[in-house]
Nucleic acid binder design. Structure first.
Lengths: 132, 132
DNA sequence: TTATATGCAAACCTTTTGCGGAACA
DNA sequence: TGTTCCGCAAAAGGTTTGCATATAA
């Protein structure tokens, strides 16, 4: 049996992801912590982010034309991505259907862990710029 | 102004994606066509799939821990992915909410093009195997 | 004829991994 | 003191891109 250990890196990485709403990539997390942890390795950041995502402590979101992003907010919500500038935002849908996993489990026979919805489009700023 | 040309490669790639429900990766499309088109380049496959996805003729779906997949069926539906074996299936939800884009456009200010929902879990077979 | 598309191969970017040493417990 | 974790660097994907050539219109 494997016993997980607490390390400075681990706790700082988790705090970093939980402490921002920017949905950082692994590289961005690495950058955020480069001051606090001298010599922090990008590989360590990836390893920890993956562990945390697999254990459900954070979310890992795959986005077309972009490195994966990580979200410390695991409450049910959607994400919106701007195809032009890459801006990546939360969207807390009042109608978010938390029972969807259950319905689809019954109909598909899968045992579901999570789902991710990403909306793609143009943010207000890029929309304006495009019209000029 | 750019005039698009019809090529053998282009039409075969589109037919291949439209003619299967397997949600092939670019490499799989390349493999499917390697008999019909001698010397077909993987770069050409990528270029064409991207053009077709950008113009809305097909869908491009980004999946965690997997190369991007392409779907010739652009009608609204979800996808389910098995975390263990990678099986990737359609799910045609009777309650699929086609008005969701509009709602989110109004609330977020984005101009939306599409959204992709991917469910992650264990397929029935992998679920059984895990219990043993 | 000429501009777009292809094939080829190199480059790029993101992510994973093997290994030896550091450091939790 | 044993085992997990880290840093480092190399390697492994996956995808894009530059360039010369082929080809559709």
């Amino acid at each position: 049996m494997i016993k997980e250990r607490n390390t400075k890196q681990k706790s700082l990485i988790l705090s970093a992801v939980r402490g921002t709403k920017t949905h950082p990539t692994a590289e961005e997390v690495h950058l955020m912590l480069s001051d606090s942890v001298q010599g922090l390795s990008l590989g360590t950041v990836y390893r920890n982010l993956n562990h945390m995502a697999e254990s459900g402590q954070i979310r890992r979101i795959s986005v077309t034309n972009s490195p994966d992003r990580f979200d410390g907010d695991i409450s049910p919500h959607h994400h919106i991505c701007c195809n032009t500038c890459g801006k990546f935002c939360d969207f807390f849908d009042t109608d978010y259907d938390t029972s969807l996993d259950k319905v689809i489990e019954e109909k598909s026979g899968f045992t579901l862990i999570k789902h991710e919805t990403v909306f793609y489009g143009l943010c207000p700023e890029c929309n304006l710029n495009q019209k000029n």
